[in-house]
Measured scan of single mutants.
Amino acid sequence: DAPDEFRDPLMDTLMTDPVRLPSGTIMDRSIILRHLLNSPTDPFNRQTLTESMLEPVPELKEQIQAWMR
């Protein structure tokens, strides 16, 4: 099983494109984008959230890719 820090906190699946929300939570980009289609909010604190506020986490993405090899 993947380490917890590699798993999306909402869907508990392996992240492939991790992004940091303004709240500091790291999620998979595809999952948070799907959530934003229904509700333009951070799913953990209900603060306003837009796609432009998502910050890529390239170092975590590299760690996940290395773990998958």
Score class of each variant (00 low, 15 high):
residue 11 M to K: 09
residue 52 S to F: 11
residue 34 R to W: 13
residue 13 T to I: 12
residue 44 F to R: 02
residue 45 N to H: 08
residue 54 L to I: 07
residue 45 N to V: 06
residue 5 E to Y: 13
residue 2 A to G: 08
residue 42 D to N: 06
residue 38 N to T: 15
residue 54 L to K: 02
residue 22 P to H: 05
residue 53 M to C: 06
residue 22 P to L: 04
residue 26 I to Y: 05
residue 66 A to F: 10
residue 28 D to N: 04
residue 29 R to L: 11
residue 22 P to M: 02
residue 25 T to V: 15
residue 43 P to N: 03
residue 33 L to N: 06
residue 64 I to M: 04
residue 23 S to G: 08
residue 67 W to Q: 02
residue 69 R to H: 13
residue 69 R to Q: 14
residue 11 M to Q: 10
residue 4 D to N: 14
residue 53 M to V: 06
residue 33 L to V: 11
residue 56 P to H: 07
residue 33 L to D: 05
residue 47 Q to N: 10
residue 23 S to M: 04
residue 14 L to A: 03
residue 54 L to G: 00
residue 2 A to D: 05
residue 24 G to R: 03
residue 40 P to W: 08
residue 60 L to D: 00
residue 38 N to K: 13
residue 15 M to L: 04
residue 55 E to A: 10
residue 33 L to F: 06
residue 58 P to M: 09
residue 37 L to T: 12
residue 58 P to I: 09
residue 30 S to L: 12
residue 36 L to Q: 00
residue 23 S to P: 01
residue 7 R to V: 06
residue 51 E to W: 13
residue 14 L to N: 03
residue 13 T to K: 07
residue 16 T to D: 09
residue 69 R to F: 11
residue 51 E to L: 11
residue 46 R to T: 10
residue 25 T to W: 15
residue 40 P to T: 11
residue 15 M to R: 00
residue 30 S to Y: 11
residue 12 D to W: 15
residue 42 D to K: 00
residue 4 D to Y: 14
residue 65 Q to V: 12
residue 31 I to Y: 07
residue 5 E to V: 11
residue 4 D to W: 15
residue 52 S to D: 15
residue 46 R to P: 06
residue 28 D to V: 04
residue 12 D to H: 15
residue 67 W to L: 04
residue 26 I to E: 02
residue 31 I to N: 09
residue 35 H to Y: 11
residue 55 E to P: 00
residue 36 L to I: 09
residue 27 M to D: 03
residue 28 D to F: 09
residue 8 D to A: 02
residue 17 D to Q: 04
residue 61 K to Q: 10
residue 11 M to E: 13
residue 64 I to H: 00
residue 62 E to R: 13
residue 68 M to T: 09
residue 64 I to P: 00
residue 40 P to C: 10
residue 16 T to V: 13
residue 61 K to V: 08
residue 53 M to E: 09
residue 11 M to T: 14
residue 37 L to N: 10
residue 15 M to Q: 00
residue 53 M to W: 06
residue 33 L to P: 00
residue 54 L to F: 06
residue 43 P to V: 02
residue 51 E to S: 11
residue 47 Q to W: 09
residue 38 N to H: 14
residue 68 M to C: 12
residue 5 E to F: 12
residue 58 P to F: 08
residue 50 T to H: 13
residue 57 V to M: 15
residue 10 L to V: 09
residue 61 K to G: 06
residue 63 Q to R: 15
residue 38 N to W: 12
residue 27 M to E: 02
residue 45 N to A: 05
residue 64 I to C: 05
residue 26 I to W: 03
residue 58 P to L: 10
residue 69 R to K: 14
residue 65 Q to L: 15
residue 2 A to Q: 06
residue 28 D to I: 07
residue 2 A to P: 15
residue 44 F to P: 02
residue 63 Q to C: 10
residue 66 A to E: 14
residue 45 N to E: 07
residue 64 I to Y: 03
residue 53 M to R: 04
